[in-house]
Design a protein around this nucleic acid. Structure first.
Length: 280
DNA sequence: GCCCAGGGATGCG
DNA sequence: CGCATCCATGGG
């Protein structure tokens, strides 16, 4: 279990605990953060948290302590999850030790949909820049930073705005998707089981099986999903000694193998392969 | 200058 | 169905 102390404007976590902000932010789940002078600034909705290490503790400095306690999933015991995964497949030990202090964020659903529509066939630094452009041109000025704009504001933009945000051919999809999202009641969607919910998400323009899985994992906290991108495809070839190219079949196989641990396994493998580039 | 990036939409057989 | 092709644009 993660030990931490909640105070009025900060959360303190022991420096050697299962919380590594670099791993958390660089494992490809979030594109709305900046690094400045050994501090990380993470943005979600209209909120911000500043994360740094004072030598003894990791400090999460924010006006929204409860929000980021949930956002960083501080109540979940990752040591149990990691042990379960290794028990299922000892070959994953290397990847889990590599990213042993990452955590899966509980992000805002709307922001997750937008960022992962942008993510399709794109690279992380470019996705990050597009998200920054959207915040800084449509968000509310909060002094130190800009909030992420709400659906009402985003849905009023035309294709040319998203071209300027460097979405490329995804600009058209984004305009369509925003019109669709306006009509969605997310509270009703939350009740659906993962399979039905995925079918709903795939209706959105620019959302296919992989992007839907990412939205389910990072936005809806569903762990019975296994997003398969180019990195997971590579690591799948390494792990199971196959040249399978059909990503749907890979996903089915991985889901069968890992069940409700799938979302976690996927994240350890993605981070390991993309960061180290090594064979597992 | 080339290949790749957290893939999806479309069309064709 | 499954499969091939096209899609903008910057990173490495």
């Amino acid at each position: 279990m993660l030990n931490y102390i909640k105070e009025k404007n900060q959360i303190k976590i022991l420096s050697n605990a299962e919380f590594d902000i670099e791993q958390i932010l660089n494992c490809g789940q979030i594109f709305t953060f900046e690094k400045k002078d050994d501090c990380y600034y993470v943005f979600s909705k209209d909120k911000m948290v500043k994360v740094f290490d004072d030598g003894k503790n990791i400090i999460l400095e924010t006006d929204s302590v409860d929000y980021f306690e949930n956002f960083f999933d501080l109540k979940t015991d990752y040591s149990l999850i990691k042990a379960d995964i290794i028990k299922k497949n000892p070959n994953l030990k290397k990847a889990i030790n590599f990213g042993s202090n990452l955590r899966i964020l509980k992000q805002d659903i709307f922001e997750t949909i937008i960022s992962f529509i942008i993510s399709a066939n794109n690279n992380i630094s470019r996705i990050t820049k597009s998200m920054k452009y959207i915040r800084e041109n449509l968000g509310e000025n909060k002094g130190e930073y800009f909030s992420f704009p709400k659906i009402e504001k985003l849905s009023k933009q035309d294709e040319s705005f998203f071209i300027k945000a460097n979405l490329g051919y995804r600009a058209k999809q984004m305009v369509k998707a925003l019109a669709q999202i306006e009509k969605i009641d997310f509270e009703k969607l939350k009740i659906l089981d993962t399979k039905l919910l995925k079918n709903e998400l795939i209706q959105l323009s620019g959302v296919g099986p992989k992007v839907a899985d990412c939205i389910l994992l990072f936005g809806f906290s569903r762990f019975d999903v296994f997003p398969v991108d180019t990195w997971i495809s590579k690591v799948y070839h390494d792990l199971f000694n196959t040249k399978q190219t059909n990503r749907n079949l890979m996903r089915e196989d991985l889901l069968n193998k890992f069940g409700n641990l799938s979302g976690y396994v996927q994240q350890y493998l993605f981070f390991y392969k993309r960061s180290s580039k090594e064979k597992i």
